[in-house]
Structures are given as C-alpha cells and as structure tokens.
C-alpha cells in the first residue's frame, strides 16, 4: 500500500519534471529540471528492484550528464550567447500533439500486451539465473554484462571511445580557457574539500568495482564516481586543459577496450568461445580496465580538451 503510494508520487513527479523540461521558457531551468528528472528516475529504478541501475542513473544519468549540460551552457554563455527559443517555424500544435499522443498510446499498448502475455519458459533471463555459477560472480547483472552478453559491453566501450574521438575531431580549436581556472583555486575551503572528497571518490569507485561481483555495483558505477572526482578537480582549477593527449592518457583511453578484447581473444586461442571469461578473476581484471577507461573518457569529455595536466 505504501509502495503503491510511493510509486504514484514518483510517477507524478517524473511526469511533472518532464513537462517542465519541455515547457520552461529558460533553457537553464529546463536543464535543471532534467537533472532532477534523472534523480527521480534513479528512485524508480530502486522501486523496480534494479539497484545497479539506480546507482548508474544517479551517477551517470543525473550526475555526469548534468555536469556536461551545465558546462556546455557555461561555454555558450562565455561566448556571449543567451539562447532564446525562437517563435517561428515550429510545426503546428495540431500536428505534434496527436503525434506525441499516438506514440504514447503505442508505448502503452506494447507494454500492456507484453505484461499480459503468459510467462514463457526458457527466456534469456531464466537461463542467466540458472547458469550464473558458470560465470563466477553472484550479482546477476554483472554476470549478464560481462559473462553472457560480453559483446554488448565490449562494443559499449567502443561507443564511449568513439564519442570522445568524435568530440575531439569536431572541436578544432583548442580553447585553454574552457574550464574555470585560478579564481576558484584560491578559496581555502575548496582545497580542504578536495583533499577529503577526491580520495573518498577513489575509494568508493574501487569499492563499487569490487562489490559489483556480489552486490549492486560494477565498473560503470565506479567509473562514474571516479569521473565525478575528476570533474571536481577540473572545476576547481587543479586540472587544466592540455593541448595534446599524453601517452598515459592514450593508454588509459584504450585500456578497457584492449584488455577486454585481448582476454577474449586469448580465451578463443585457448579453445573456448570468444569472450567467455574464465572465472571471477578475469571479470575483475577486465572490470578494472573498464573502470579506468570509463573514468578517463568521461572526464575528458567533460573537459572538452585533448588532455589534462596538473595546473601550474
């Protein structure tokens, strides 16, 4: 009963925030509403018995996406632009409202029919639960991510790398002033906060990585927390943009993809199917490489710079 009430409140909040994102006059307000929308989505993942997703949505969906949106807004403002919604050339409401309504109706029909269908034996999820011991971890989501559907995770890392390469290819002129600099560095409170929070973010990231085998967690959540520590360092002027990607950064960017592929190919050379990771140690090895890559890629995407170096 209480659960149902909470679901109703969450649903109303999510819908309200979505409406505010679309209808706000000010783009800044729309972005803030979207960040809070991400937080409420995280709560609904928790209600839907998906704690891994709740962690990931809070860290990546609300946190990193929010930071990216706000820093882009800041850069647009710094170039003297204040985006205002122009009134002309929007398609007529009579066209878009029925389209959106039909799309919603389609989603409802799909969901309703799918929920009414009787449970089919032998679905992928059931097989995953039954054969989880073969993978070596007890968290089913980690088992599926790195065991049963390892291809998806491998290609997901490739997508992340491709996004950074694309962002790097598009940004032709290197703007060293893209990040706030020494103005924040001189505030003493910030230094004290960083000296506490950044080591804690590393600790939490490694803990999430290690706990991902048996409890909610994993490489993606840990990578996002580590990236959040890096974003803090960028924002407070401890890290500044560098004109070129250093060798260590290049190694870190491709580490996840290459370790994953290498382990998978070695397994194939050893006679098994490709990417059938032979036990929990292989999963932790690959996840550590993924953690480093994810964190580094997200921080570099935030900084919109080829590389980062310690501020002089």
């Amino acid at each position: 009963m209480i659960g149902l009430a909470m679901d109703c409140v969450l649903a109303l909040g999510i819908v309200f925030l979505a409406v505010q994102t679309v209808r706000s006059r000010s783009l800044f307000q729309a972005m803030l509403m979207f960040i809070v929308f991400g937080l409420l989505m995280s709560l609904s993942w928790a209600r839907l018995h998906a704690p891994d997703l709740a962690l990931a949505e809070a860290a990546i969906g609300a946190g990193i996406t929010g930071a990216l949106l706000l820093v882009t807004w800041r850069r647009l403002q710094a170039e003297g632009h204040d985006p205002v919604e122009s009134e002309q050339s929007a398609p007529s409401m009579w066209l878009t409202l029925p389209t959106a309504g039909a799309a919603s109706l389609l989603v409802v029909i799909i969901g309703w029919v799918a929920l009414q269908l009787p449970a089919v034996p032998g679905t992928a999820g059931e097989l995953a639960w039954q054969r989880l011991e073969e993978v070596g971890v007890s968290n089913p989501v980690t088992g599926v991510l790195l065991g049963f559907r390892a291809y998806d995770t491998l290609l997901e890392m490739a997508v992340l790398l491709a996004a950074w390469l694309g962002a790097r290819a598009v940004a032709t002129e290197f703007r060293p002033g893209a990040l706030p600099g020494p103005a924040h560095a001189e505030v003493p409170l910030v230094g004290a906060l960083l000296s506490l929070v950044v080591p804690i973010s590393i600790l939490v990231a490694v803990y999430l990585l290690q706990a991902g085998g048996s409890a909610p967690g994993g490489a993606f959540q840990g990578g996002a927390v580590l990236a959040a520590g890096g974003v803090l360092l960028c924002l407070t002027g401890r890290l500044e943009a560098a004109a070129d990607t250093s060798g260590l950064e290049r190694l870190g960017l491709i580490l996840g993809l290459s370790v994953f592929s290498l382990v998978g190919l070695l397994v194939m050379a050893g006679g098994g199917p490709m990417l059938a990771l032979p036990g929990a140690w292989a999963i932790y090895l690959v996840e550590t490489a993924l953690l480093v890559s994810i964190a580094l890629t997200l921080v570099l995407l935030f900084a919109a710079a080829p590389g980062l170096r310690r501020a002089s």
Binding site: H184, V187, L189, V190, L193, L196, V197, I200
Partner: peptide, 16 residues
C-alpha cells in the same frame, strides 16, 4: 558528513 561538507563549500562559493 559528506553532505554537510558539500553543502558548506557550495554555499560559500555561491555567496562569494
């Protein structure tokens, strides 16, 4: 404690 720290520092920065 972490929530306190974050709120304190961000409050100070906003006021500044």
């Amino acid at each position: 404690i972490l929530g306190l720290l974050a709120a304190t520092v961000s409050c100070h920065l906003i006021a500044r």
